[in-house]
Simulated assay, not measured.
Amino acid sequence: MDYTIFAVIIFVVALLVVGGAFLIRPRRSGAPPEPPAEERGEGAAGTTTAEPDEESAQHERAAGTAVAEPGAPAAAEIETPPPSAGRLVRLRARLARSQNVFGQSLLGLLSADRLDESAWEEIEDTLITADVGVTSAAQIVENLRTKVKVLGSRTPDEVRDLLRSELLAQIGTDQDRTVHTEPHAGGPAVVMVVGVNGTGKTTTAGKLARVLVGDGRSVVLGAADTFRAAAADQLETWGSRVGAPVVRRDEGADPASVAFEAVTRGMDDHADTVIVDTAGRLHTKTGLMDELGKVKRVVEKKTSVDDVLLVLDATTGQNGLRQARVFAEAVNISGIVLTKLDGTAKGGIVIQVQRELGVPVKLVGLGEGPDDLAPFDHEAFVDAILEGGE
C-alpha cells in the first residue's frame, strides 16, 4: 500500500474526530441557558419584534404615525363634572366665611336691648357698606323698624327670622333664575356671555359648559372674542376637558361670523346648548358696544338668543354697576353672573345689581376651582350670610 495515501487518510480521519468532539461537547457548567424564542423578541416564525430605534421612530413620526415616547403621559380623559343641583349649598360654608362681617354686624345690632336712632343709622350704614345700595338700605331699615315696633321684645331667633325674611324680600323670591339652556324647535339654546375683561368672562363660559355637561347636556362653545387669541386658547382648554367642541377663527376675525358659525355647528351636531363667549368690551368704547349688538343680531338670523349673561366682578362695587348699565343699553341682558363673591364681604351687591338692572342674578362664582360656579339660590345665599353672623 502507498504509505502516502495511508497517511492522508489517517490525517483526515483525525480531523473529523477532533472536529466532531468540539461540536458536540456539553455546555459548560454554570452557563445560562438560551432564552425561549418569545423572550428573545421573536415571534412564532422567529421574526424579531424588538422596539424601533430612535431613527425609526422619527421616520414614523414624519409619516404621521403615532409613536409612544418612553414615559409619556397618557392622553387626558374627558372629565365628568358634578351636576348643578345643590352646588351653592355645598359651597355655602365658603360663602358664609366671606360674609361673616356683614351677617355678624347686622345680627349684633338688631339684637341690642335698645334700638335708638343712632343704632338704626348704624344698621343702615352697615347695609350700604355691604353694597346693598342707598335706596335698598333705607327700605330695609324702614321695614325692620316697623316689624321690631310691632314685635316688641326680640329673641335671637326672632331677630334672625326678621332679617332673613327682609333680605329674601329684597333679593326677590319670585324671579326666574333659570339659565335657559334647553334646546327648542329652532335648534339649540344659545347663551351669550358678555362683560369686561378681567371679570372672569371667558372662565365663566368654560365653567358654564362644565355645569351643563354635568347635567347631561351637549355643548358647543363659540370663541367670538377674536381680539385675544389667548381667550380662544383658554376656551379650548375648558372645552377639551369635558368634550365640548370649540368654534374659533384667527385673531382679528369677525366676531359675529364666529358666533354664527358656532350656532350652525350646534345645529349640525344636534347640541343642546351653544355658549358664545364675546370680547371683553371696554364700556367706554361705543364702537365695540355696537359690535356686541351686531353679534346678537347676526345670531338671531339663525335662531333665537335665549340668554344674555353679564359677568360682573363682585369685588368692583360701584364701578361694576356702571359697567352693567352700559352693557344693558347695548344688548338686552337677561341675567347676571357675579364672580369672586367668595372674595368680598359685600354680598349686598346681589340686591343692588338686581335693583339697578331689573334682571336676576342667575349664577355666582365662589372660587377658582373648575366647579365653583353655581346656580344662584336666594335662600341658600341668605342663610349663608346669617350663618356667617352666628
Rank of each mutant, 00 (worst) to 15 (best):
P82S: 13
P245S: 11
V194I: 15
R228A: 09
E38Q: 12
Y3F: 12
R322M: 13
G103P: 09
G172K: 05
R325T: 15
V150P: 00
R154T: 13
L107Y: 03
N332P: 01
V382C: 08
L16E: 07
Q170N: 07
S136A: 15
A345P: 06
V134W: 04
G243M: 09
E390K: 13
G287D: 14
V194R: 05
R90K: 15
A169H: 13
G187T: 06
G320R: 01
A14N: 01
Q318Y: 05
V193P: 01
A96Q: 06
E77P: 00
A223E: 06
A209E: 03
Q170V: 15
E51N: 04
L235M: 11
S153D: 13
A223M: 06
K207E: 03
V350C: 05
D215Y: 01
Q104P: 00
H270S: 15
S105P: 00
V179L: 13
A189G: 11
P73G: 04
K296G: 02
E236M: 02
E121L: 13
V67T: 09
G108C: 11
L15Y: 04
T278P: 08
L312Q: 02
R160W: 04
D277M: 12
A324R: 03
D290Y: 04
A374L: 07
R297F: 11
D272R: 02
R92P: 02
T181Q: 03
T202C: 12
E300K: 10
A72I: 03
T135Y: 01
I128R: 10
S29W: 01
V17C: 05
E300V: 02
P35V: 11
R241K: 14
D116W: 06
S165C: 00
T316P: 09
D157P: 01
L292T: 11
D313Y: 12
L309I: 10
F102C: 12
P81I: 05
F381P: 02
E142R: 10
L366Q: 01
I171C: 08
G348P: 11
D290T: 08
G64K: 03
P36S: 13
R249F: 01
T49H: 08
M192P: 08
E142A: 15
R40T: 02
Q354Y: 05
T146P: 00
A185H: 08
Q170R: 09
G103C: 03
T135F: 02
K149L: 14
K301P: 02
A259Q: 05
A330N: 07
A374K: 02
A380K: 03
G320D: 04
G388K: 04
I336P: 05
G320I: 13
G280Q: 09
A169Q: 13
E60N: 03
